[in-house]
Computed example of a mutant assay.
Amino acid sequence: MFTGIVTALGRIAAIEDGPVRRITVDSPYAAHSFSLGCSVSHDGACLTLVSVEPQEQGARHVVEVSPETLARTTLGAWAVGTDVNLERALKVGDELGGHIVQGHVDGVGEVRAREDVDGWMRLRIAAPDALAAFIAEKGSIAVDGVSLTVNAVEENLFDLMIIPHTAAVTTLGRLQPGAHVNLEVDVMARYAARLIDFRPAGTPS
């Protein structure tokens, strides 16, 4: 469980292909603060740490990524040197600064437009059609693991306003039209839709 408040930028140090892809990530986190098997959000995807080593500055950790995750997220496009948004898992008692984020990417969106005005950044993103019903004006959405408020919605397109601080401390400030991003819709919207759609067998419509 996460909140969509990015706490560090990591950098891909190595990628090892195989039945399960192993990705090595350098981060400023202290190695002793990790435990094997803990979960960390990488660009919005919850991944399990299978190895952790201290570095001169920070830590180097390894995650294993399944073919399913590679197919449903942007992680398959990562290369050595790629920067990624990182967030540690939420602890009981932590401040809930964003919204409830599970780290389960629902789909990949595409940046259609970017406008920079007085330090602010306005993005327009196209979501997969299957996710459009879950995105509401003034609702929450996680984009590459960052908790954001939706400013406007038009069919499967939605607009975001990124404050200068968020653009500076996450990878969002580097996004340009044509870039692909991981999307996770608000979990409450997802369950509300399921409750509306679900009808036990024999229930009158």
Rank of each mutant, 00 (worst) to 15 (best):
H104M: 06
H104K: 07
H104P: 09
V105N: 03
V105K: 04
V105F: 02
D106C: 09
D106K: 11
D106V: 10
G107L: 08
V108C: 08
V108I: 15
V108M: 05
G109N: 10
G109Y: 06
E110W: 04
E110F: 01
E110M: 14
V111D: 01
R112W: 02
A113D: 11
A113N: 08
A113I: 00
A113Q: 14
R114K: 14
R114P: 02
R114S: 10
R114T: 11
R114G: 00
R114C: 06
E115S: 13
E115K: 15
D116V: 15
V117Q: 15
D118Y: 11
G119W: 12
G119Y: 14
G119Q: 13
W120P: 00
W120S: 15
W120E: 10
M121D: 01
M121Q: 15
R122Y: 10
R122N: 09
L123V: 04
L123K: 01
L123A: 04
L123D: 01
R124M: 06
R124T: 14
R124N: 03
R124I: 08
I125M: 07
I125R: 08
A126C: 08
A126P: 04
A127E: 04
A127C: 07
A127G: 08
A127I: 09
P128W: 07
P128H: 02
D129S: 10
D129F: 07
A130N: 10
A130L: 03
A130I: 05
L131F: 04
L131S: 06
L131M: 13
L131I: 08
L131V: 04
A132W: 11
A132H: 03
A133Y: 00
A133S: 11
A133M: 08
A133C: 05
A133K: 13
F134Y: 14
F134I: 00
F134R: 02
I135C: 07
I135A: 04
A136S: 07
